[in-house]
Amino acid sequence: MAYSDKVIDHYENPRNVGSLDKGDESVGTGVVGAPACGDVMKLQIKVEGGVITDAKFKTYGCGSAIASSSLVTEWVKGMKIEDAMEIKNSQIAEELSLPPVKIHCSVLAEDAIKAAIVDYQKKHGGA
């Protein structure tokens, strides 16, 4: 399959690979998986004053899954958490020109950022 230039760029030079301290009160962690293919993705955010100041990811999967999560960590830095909650997989798929068979990779990245925010909110007594 032919990957777009943007996918290849993120795949070869992934941004923000790594981990934040899961136990830190200011960190939210989201872990999601694609059951049909076995890909797993961990996305973490550090939140200060309602704003995401850092984001890290680790994705074990195909190039599109790595690119989707890499892109999301770039996007969310500096965003308010409520704005990050609004990120849609269609925006990710469009930015990376993902083909239809790889749309589920962008869904995974959307699920991961949402899960990270929910985890952060839980730590702070939110919904």
Binding site: V31, G33, A34, P35, A36, V40, K42, Y60, V107
Partner: peptide, 21 residues
């Protein structure tokens, strides 16, 4: 083989996914 929530592959729990990571 399907990722659909209805009738697709069942989603695994957080603990299992974290273990896989």
């Amino acid at each position: 083989d399907s990722s659909e929530p209805e009738g697709g592959a069942p989603a695994m729990g957080q603990a299992f996914l974290m273990e896989m990571i």
